[in-house]
Amino acid sequence: MGANKLAYWKAIIDRIKNAFSTWKARWLSLSGRLLQIKTGLSAIPNYYMSILKAAIGVIQQVEKIIRGFLWRHNMSEEKKISLISIQEMAHDKGGGGVGLHDLSKRNIAFGGKLVWKMVSKPDTKWCRIMQEKYLDSLNPSPVGTTLDPPKGSIVWNFMMSWRQVITRYVSWEVHNGESIQLWEDSWNGLPPLKLSELLLDAIPTI
């Protein structure tokens, strides 16, 4: 599949351009254009953004297309000045926005969702493949506790880049303690004790 670069997303950006073409904007009201944007953004980039990390340049290009489509005059090629930023439009109506999805946050959420599936459903086929290839096949918990996860496929790297979205809010139930890893697990949101031990070893003694 190659490196996850801006060029790889060209086909997706072209599809978005086609969905938000100028001639369509001419015949739609502002509300109609807004609905078209919501529909297009819910369908076109979702698959790719759910398994790949979108570059900043990709998100900026998509947002530029959205602005041009939304603020265009109905029956002319003239563009209006953007009256509100894409980021502010991402708020719900109660917060002064219109409910557009923030693409960068959606991308992060997709990555966190994959990590959560590995933690909560480690027996599914794709989770077992990832587990066998990159982690300890007998223990699914390292996906959230490994200090320095190995590099791998672009999908795996995408997951690892956003795993803190999940691990930041995960807690453990001790029960009989058999599955607890005292040194590798994070306690009370703090770094694992193993990391603290490494830091202490690095401090020179007087």
Rank of each mutant, 00 (worst) to 15 (best):
Y48R: 12
K80A: 09
S31H: 06
F110M: 06
H175K: 15
L182W: 13
W9N: 02
L200E: 10
I13S: 01
I56L: 01
K79D: 15
I81V: 15
I13T: 13
H91P: 01
W126N: 02
W172E: 04
N74R: 15
K17N: 11
H175N: 11
Q131C: 08
K125F: 15
L35G: 06
M160Q: 04
W183P: 02
M118H: 03
N18R: 11
A55I: 07
V62C: 01
K80I: 08
G68W: 02
V155P: 00
D201N: 05
Y47N: 01
L200S: 03
N139M: 10
V115Y: 04
I180H: 06
Y8E: 04
S42Y: 01
L103W: 03
T167C: 14
N18D: 10
V155M: 02
V115D: 04
M49H: 02
T167Y: 03
L83K: 13
R72H: 07
D201I: 03
K117C: 08
V165N: 12
W126Q: 02
Y47I: 00
S141Q: 12
M75D: 13
P149L: 04
E77P: 12
D92V: 10
Y48M: 09
S161M: 12
A55Y: 09
P191A: 09
W183M: 09
V98D: 10
K5V: 07
A109H: 11
S196P: 04
T205E: 14
H175G: 11
I180P: 08
G111K: 01
K38R: 14
D102G: 03
H91T: 02
G97N: 05
K80V: 07
I86N: 08
G111Q: 00
N18V: 11
Q87A: 10
S50G: 05
G97K: 05
G112F: 03
V174K: 15
W156C: 00
V174L: 09
K38Q: 14
Y134K: 07
A19D: 08
L70K: 10
S171R: 15
K53D: 03
W183K: 06
P45G: 03
V119E: 10
L35T: 14
I129Y: 13
L30R: 13
K64D: 15
E88W: 14
R72L: 08
E184R: 10
W156R: 00
S82P: 14
Y134G: 01
R26Q: 15
K105N: 07
G40T: 09
G95W: 02
E88K: 09
K17E: 10
H101R: 13
R67W: 05
T124L: 11
M160H: 01
L28H: 05
T22D: 07
S31V: 06
K194C: 05
E184M: 06
F20S: 04
P204C: 09
G32I: 06
I166C: 14
K117Y: 03
S137Y: 11
V115A: 06
L6C: 05
W126T: 00
W156G: 00
D148C: 13
V174H: 14
L200V: 10
K117I: 03
D136M: 07
E178K: 14
L83Q: 13
F20T: 03
K79G: 15
I37N: 01
W23M: 08
E63V: 07
G152I: 01
A3P: 05
P150W: 04
I16K: 08
L52V: 00
T39D: 05
A7Q: 05
G97P: 04
M118Y: 00
T167S: 14
A43E: 03
L41P: 01
D185Y: 15
E78H: 14
Y134T: 05
R163E: 03
